[in-house]
Amino acid sequence: MLRLTIRQMQYFEGLAQALHFGRAAAAMGVTQPALSAQIAEMESQLGFPLFERGAGRVRLTEEALTLKPRIERILAEVQDLESFARRERKVLEGRFRLGIIPTIAPYLLPELLPRLKQGFPGLQLEVREAVTGTLIEETDNGRLDGMIAADPIVEPRLAYQSLFEDAFHLAVPEAEAERIAPPVAQESMALERLMLLEDGHCMRGQALAVCGMVKPVTMESFGATSLTTLLQMVSHGMGVTLIPEMARKTAALLPGLRILPFAAPGPSRTICLAWRRSNPRQADLAALCGIVKEANQAIT
Rank of each mutant, 00 (worst) to 15 (best):
E137A: 13
R128T: 08
A76T: 02
R89T: 13
E72R: 14
T66N: 06
S44L: 08
L125N: 00
Q118K: 12
G142K: 02
E88L: 10
A150W: 10
P49A: 07
E62V: 09
I100Y: 01
L92M: 05
L67I: 06
V127W: 04
V78E: 05
E111A: 15
M147T: 11
I100R: 00
E77I: 06
S44T: 13
K68W: 13
P49M: 06
P69T: 09
E129W: 01
M147N: 06
F48C: 10
L98D: 13
Y107D: 10
G119F: 02
I101N: 01
G122W: 08
L75G: 01
G119K: 03
A85N: 04
F51I: 11
R59C: 09
R53D: 03
F48R: 13
A85S: 08
R57W: 02
E93L: 10
A55R: 15
L92E: 08
K117N: 14
L108N: 04
A85T: 13
I136Q: 10
R53P: 02
D140T: 13
T132A: 07
E88R: 08
V91M: 08
A85K: 15
F51E: 06
Q45R: 12
L144S: 06
A55L: 06
L113I: 14
A55V: 08
L81G: 13
G146S: 15
V127F: 11
Q45N: 10
P102K: 10
E137V: 11
R86W: 07
I136G: 09
K68S: 04
T132N: 04
V78D: 10
I148T: 05
G47T: 14
D80W: 04
L109H: 03
E138R: 07
G94D: 09
R73T: 12
V78Y: 02
P106M: 12
R143F: 01
P110A: 01
T66I: 11
G54M: 05
R97C: 00
G54N: 13
K117S: 10
P114I: 09
K90H: 14
G133T: 09
R73M: 12
L65N: 09
D140W: 03
T66R: 11
L109P: 02
L92S: 10
M147I: 08
A105K: 01
E63H: 13
D140Q: 10
V127N: 05
I71Y: 03
R59H: 12
S44K: 09
F120N: 08
N141D: 12
L125T: 02
M147P: 02
E77K: 07
S44R: 15
P110S: 07
E63I: 05
R89K: 14
R128A: 13
L108G: 03
R70A: 12
E63A: 15
T139A: 07
L109D: 09
K68F: 07
A76Q: 03
I101K: 01
T139R: 01
F48T: 11
A149Q: 01
I101R: 00
L144H: 08
E62C: 00
S44N: 11
F51S: 03
L46M: 15
T66A: 15
F51N: 03
K117H: 12
L108T: 00
G56A: 06
L60M: 12
R59A: 10
L116A: 10
E62I: 03
L98M: 10
